[in-house]
Design a protein around this nucleic acid. Sequence first.
DNA 1: CCAGGATGGATAGTCACAGTATCCATTATG
DNA 2: CATAATGGATACTGTGACTATCCATCCTGG
Lengths: 210, 210
Amino acid sequence: MRMAELSAESGMPVATIKYYLREGLLHPGERTSPNQARYGDDHVQRLKLIRALLDVGGLSVATVGGVLAAIDAREPTNEVLGVTQRALVGGASDVDEEARAWALDLLHKLAAAHGWKFGPEHPAAPGLITTLCTIRALGHPALLDRIEDYATLADRIAEVDLDTLAAHPSLDRIVEAAVVGTVLGDRLFAGLRRFAQAAESGRRYPGGLG
Amino acid sequence: MRMAELSAESGMPVATIKYYLREGLLHPGERTSPNQARYGDDHVQRLKLIRALLDVGGLSVATVGGVLAAIDAREPTNEVLGVTQRALVGGASDVDEEARAWALDLLHKLAAAHGWKFGPEHPAAPGLITTLCTIRALGHPALLDRIEDYATLADRIAEVDLDTLAAHPSLDRIVEAAVVGTVLGDRLFAGLRRFAQAAESGRRYPGGLG
DNA sequence: CCAGGATGGATAGTCACAGTATCCATTATG
DNA sequence: CATAATGGATACTGTGACTATCCATCCTGG
């Protein structure tokens, strides 16, 4: 199909598609002459993925470019997930040395208890350290009292996550499924958590908790 | 303390603090003359909370303003959490009627099975519906096969969430704790999930999953 | 008690990001 | 072959989050 059809099919303006082409999020179409090109269903699919990562995942255009490049390069799944995870968790903000040490210690204990291979080089480590330090700095340490329980439930979630991936038939799209599962999986679970919280709250405080 | 000290104490530029004052995120200081003011530790604390919601929570300045206003108005906890949740989950993007109906049906079944009071008016509903429709539109329905398990685990998480809140001694800061717990709690759990996924993946595919 | 630096408040400027819009030299196509 | 569409380059817009400048007070050390 040509540009106008791709635009109609995907529901997004021609100018925007050209922008994504410029930024390398979308592959150039197949050339039919020095300055003409044809696009296919893969372009439509790719545009959907781009919008999902931008809108629902909340990633930036540059970040989406990095994630898609990793997928296209057929890097090993772990590598692609690393890129994705680094994109999802904010970088390490500057916390003082004492707080960082405390967070590292906490995570080391947690990792030991749960059989995680923890190291500061893990893509999720900087974000987690920042979050822990922030909660502590805000003076809400009680929020961390039950972190052990959260870790246990994270293990259960991860089992389901991996089951889901394993059930995926096509090896070709498994990497994309992993990315979608990571980015949208967080949103999905966060939403379910909201509903569960509301229900639990209603159960415990039938009159509203003031 | 005065502006320069507040700036030093909080580590952020005077111009930025003035900006937050303008936007109503930070209360004006106590007046000492028609055009002079003094600030206190509560201002330092508030600035920390603002940075946490902006940086770690990823909220916009306008959204933070709304959440803080709800806290300051001493609205009921449920109301404040509603504001917070609407801020966290993106609004409803335009999905076609058939997809929306499918998502609503799915959520209704889930809610019935888990004792949730589901309704489209729940603050988390639009975001969840959008996420579900997006996953389906991307052609990864397998990611939803185990949503029942996710919902069950969300219930377990919510129990811990509410336990944590209940353990909080000071009624005065419980609303703030609820907000911090909601905003940073998602980030925290997402980080733990990353580690658990890595561990589970390593357990199942010792050589890396290609 | 007064010179010089700080403050509150208003206004304007900057920068990055995510598109949009305009041009134009080709290409297609009726 | 006249009209419309395309690829590519370049320029423009709008929003969000600051950042800088001004200036009429204020305060404070000498």
